[in-house]
């Protein structure tokens, strides 16, 4: 890969002098993009952190109202898709065209399963009026148990136990964040799946080899990042307080 001159690889763009320069530029570019993504989600996580500190009771109650099973299945599915993605990168590194394509398809399938389950979960939220907005309604069946717990005292004179009005307002904040966070995550998945389709097509056409597979590698980095976001979202949204 380094140093020794090859005849021009067909994928070498004119403004790069070597394939390895091109690859390193591409991979660094993807990492800088992920740097941006980390800060993008970082803004959401700080918002979540603040309101969870302020309205712990509501967050616990709202989180408890979410079914844990679909979330757990999705965790398994998404980490599984990360594995298949990693394996397709490995296959492209080692010149196995068929395996590259197959692992990519597996990744697409798992990603779609994740989104399918997400659709089911969203539909469930709509049904229970857990979508923030004018029709939002959080029945306080969990509220009574939650009331036993102390909310983190954020401001002096802050009410420790929430009345139904406040519970309604503050669980709406939880669900607002739930939808913004999982919605943006799902949007990233959709973009990822579109990219995966393109990459799969290119791999199928035999565009990649052990010397030129940066697009597969970069797609992989993106996909793993999306996986990491979910790794944090899962406990933060589904597991705020499950004991008692």
């Amino acid at each position: 890969m380094h140093g020794h001159d090859h005849a021009h690889h067909p994928a070498l763009q004119h403004h790069f002098s070597t394939m390895s320069q091109q690859r390193e530029a591409g991979v660094l570019g993807m990492w800088v993009f992920l740097l941006t993504e980390v800060l993008f989600f970082g803004g959401l996580f700080i918002t979540y952190t603040l309101y969870r500190m302020w309205y712990y009771e509501a967050f616990a109650a709202a989180s408890k109202s979410i079914e844990i099973t679909p979330g757990l299945i999705n965790t398994v599915v998404l980490i599984g898709s990360s594995l298949t993605m990693a394996l397709s990168v490995r296959a492209s590194q080692t010149n196995q065209r068929k395996a590259t394509v197959n692992w990519l398809i597996a990744t697409i399938i798992l990603g779609s399963v994740f989104l399918g389950i997400k659709v089911y979960e969203y539909a469930d939220k709509f049904e229970h009026h857990h979508v923030p907005g004018p029709s939002f309604q959080f029945a306080s069946e969990h509220g009574a148990e939650g009331a036993a717990h102390e909310a983190a005292p954020a401001e002096g004179g802050h009410e420790v136990t929430m009345g139904p009005d406040q519970l309604q307002r503050t669980t709406q904040i939880f669900f607002s964040l739930y939808f913004v966070m999982t919605g943006l995550h799902a949007l990233h998945m959709i973009v990822g799946i579109v990219i995966l389709f393109i990459i799969t097509w290119m791999a199928h056409k035999g565009r990649f080899d052990s010397e030129y597979h940066a697009p597969v590698e970069m797609t992989g980095l993106y996909w793993h990042f999306v996986d990491i976001v979910w790794i944090f979202l899962f406990p933060l949204l589904y597991l705020v307080e499950r004991h008692n």
């Binding site: 990360s82 594995l83 993605m85 990693a86 992989g220 980095l221 793993h224 990042f225 996986d227 990491i228 790794i231």
Partner: peptide
Amino acid sequence: TLVILYFM
């Protein structure tokens, strides 16, 4: 960390 170190 595991994903970053090994998958990525």
